[in-house]
Write a protein that binds this DNA or RNA. Structure first.
Lengths: 220, 220
DNA sequence: TTGGAAAATTGAACACTGTTTAATATTTTT
DNA sequence: AAAAATATTAAACAGTGTTCAATTTTCCAA
């Protein structure tokens, strides 16, 4: 019964081979300029064979898309053991941006490229859905523990996600022409810092009765 | 000598006609699915004729792109007469988001669609450059007058732009699947409010000897 | 008004694209 | 070794952006 196993292995190997080649082409040339025939050429098969392993071009794209999200999620695990929720939120933002800056083309593929998805659009964004939930829970914790000054969890989650996404996507799509290339990455991180600082709850005076009081009696 | 004038008029009319039709198709179907032949069909000319009026498909796209930025700039003029710079900044964000929500497909075309531009990429983004400068100057004023708590103009400009762009682009590219459709636009505006509130300089206690004091002795 | 030059328009051609399918080649099972 | 199942291919279809020789239309001078 080993033949079926080997066949299954061969099939998976072929799939991986196609994904590997297609992934490189998507990342290097973009969706449009990646053609089935070019993929087929590179793996030294005819174009028709591709359709034995993937339903269509979108199927290939979506598989790569899914794998990319798995990769991002792996990075998220780094913050699991951080005690303080605000610090955890900050690190999450940092990791997200770092991932995007280190894998700009992959990020583009995940969040920007090829938006008018023909089908499977719902299934596709389940990955994004998980991302959102992950951030949502963290934001909720920060709000409950009054570590950030916001109150609406949904709006705040959106705000934070939008900010980091905006920062990196404008960079990736070359919209920061006005800033010296060398400084961009540093400034993006600085912008993250400023945002986190801005949303942080002000320190509460230790014995004070004034609810609006701030930064009084710092004793130095 | 009126013939040359009329010819010039006819030429411009033809160009406008092509742009009108192409614009609708780009907005409705996206870049890929808009073909020169389809444009030609709709204006009842052959495909070759298009090339008498535009260098290539990108030339058509970039012309529409430019016009879209002109449209956005027109809206920006609304805030010119607002005295208070922080209020002006807030209104600018509001107008930007409003424009994006009212013209989602146009916004997509301007900021997201068709990123791997073949040529003219530099010229293209001059419009974006102007946008950035406009915002930059305003942020600088807010920093100088200590109306926002930030200090680095470049990082803050980037942060604000990225935030509003992130908010609307995630919406436009359908990335807010997890939020009820009816609430999204309201929440986006709420997120803008929260961001503006978060970056605003804190009120200074009234009678203090605080060197950071501001808006004292207003006599009313 | 007519003839020739200039300009505008066309349709065919080229080299691509994603996808389907009938024919062929290979591998597995009987 | 024959039959069945599977894998691969080449050809075809309808589409794409773009170019170009041939044709039609428009213009202006004789």
């Amino acid at each position: 019964m080993g033949i079926k196993d080997r066949k299954e292995r061969d099939r998976q190997e072929m799939r991986d081979n196609i994904l590997e080649v297609a992934s490189n082409m998507f990342l290097e040339e973009g969706y449009d300029k990646t053609s089935i025939r070019n993929i087929a050429d590179k793996i030294e098969y005819s174009a028709g064979t591709i359709y034995q392993y993937f339903k269509d071009k979108d199927d290939i794209f979506l598989t790569i898309h899914r794998q990319a999200f798995d990769k991002l999620f792996t990075h998220f695990n780094q913050i699991a053991q951080i005690e303080d929720c605000f610090e955890r939120l900050y690190r999450l933002g940092y990791i997200y941006i770092k991932f995007a800056l280190e894998n700009p083309k992959l990020y583009d593929l995940m969040f920007i490229m090829h938006a008018p998805m023909n089908a499977l659009k719902d299934e596709l964004w389940d990955c994004g859905h998980s991302s959102f939930d992950f951030l949502y829970d963290l934001v909720q914790e920060c709000i409950e523990k009054k570590r950030i000054k916001m109150h609406d969890t949904q709006a705040t989650t959106m705000l934070i996600w939008a900010t980091v996404h905006g920062l990196v996507s404008l960079h990736i799509r070359n919209r920061y022409k006005m800033i010296e290339t060398e400084r961009i990455e540093q400034i993006i991180m600085q912008a993250l810092d400023e945002m986190m600082e801005a949303i942080k709850s002000p320190p509460v005076p230790e014995g004070g009765a004034n609810p609006n009081m701030q930064e009084v009696d710092k004793n130095f």
